[in-house]
Amino acid sequence: MTDNVRHAPQVHDGPSSRHPLVPYINAWSEEEDPPGKVIEIPGRGLVYADELVTDRDDRGVLWFRTISRPRQGRPNFQRVHPLRQRRAMRRLLCQVCAEPADVTEDGVLWLLKDQRTDWPDWPKGMGVTEPPVCLSCVPVAARQCPALRKGAAAIRARSFPVSGVRAMIYRSGPDGLNPIGEKNIPYGNSALRWARAMNLIRKLNECTVVSLEELCQKSK
Rank of each mutant, 00 (worst) to 15 (best):
P131I: 06
S211E: 05
C134K: 06
P146F: 02
S211R: 03
L148K: 07
M126Y: 08
I169S: 01
L204I: 10
P139Q: 04
A197V: 10
D121P: 00
L204V: 11
A154L: 08
R196W: 00
P132V: 07
D121N: 08
Y170F: 15
C137F: 11
E182V: 08
L192I: 13
P186N: 15
K150T: 07
K150W: 01
P174N: 11
P174M: 04
A147S: 13
G188C: 03
T208D: 06
A142K: 02
R196N: 03
A141V: 09
A197Y: 07
D175G: 01
E182C: 04
T129S: 14
M126C: 11
R158C: 13
V162I: 15
C145M: 13
K183L: 04
Q144K: 02
A152C: 09
K183N: 01
N189R: 03
L135K: 10
I201K: 01
V209P: 00
A197S: 11
G181S: 12
N199K: 13
C207I: 02
A197N: 08
P179E: 04
P132Y: 13
I201R: 05
R158W: 04
A152R: 07
E182S: 12
L148G: 08
P120L: 10
L204A: 08
C137V: 14
P132L: 09
G176T: 07
E206C: 02
P123N: 06
V133N: 12
L177S: 01
P161K: 01
G181P: 08
N199V: 01
P131L: 08
A142C: 05
A195C: 13
I155M: 13
S172C: 03
C207G: 02
M126H: 05
P123W: 07
P179N: 06
G176D: 11
D175V: 07
V140H: 02
K203V: 03
P132E: 14
D175F: 11
G176C: 10
I169G: 01
A153C: 04
A142F: 04
G164T: 09
V210C: 04
I180Y: 07
C137K: 10
V133Q: 08
A147D: 13
A152I: 10
G176M: 12
R158S: 14
V165M: 06
P123Q: 07
S163D: 09
V209W: 00
A153M: 06
A152P: 09
R156E: 15
R149D: 00
E206D: 15
V209N: 00
M168R: 01
S163A: 14
C145G: 02
I155Y: 12
K183S: 09
N199S: 14
L204P: 09
W122L: 10
R196M: 09
R143H: 14
T129P: 00
A147V: 02
V133E: 07
A154H: 11
G188N: 01
L204E: 08
T208H: 06
C134S: 05
P179L: 05
P120C: 12
P131D: 09
K124M: 11
L135T: 12
M168F: 00
W194K: 02
A157V: 04
I169M: 10
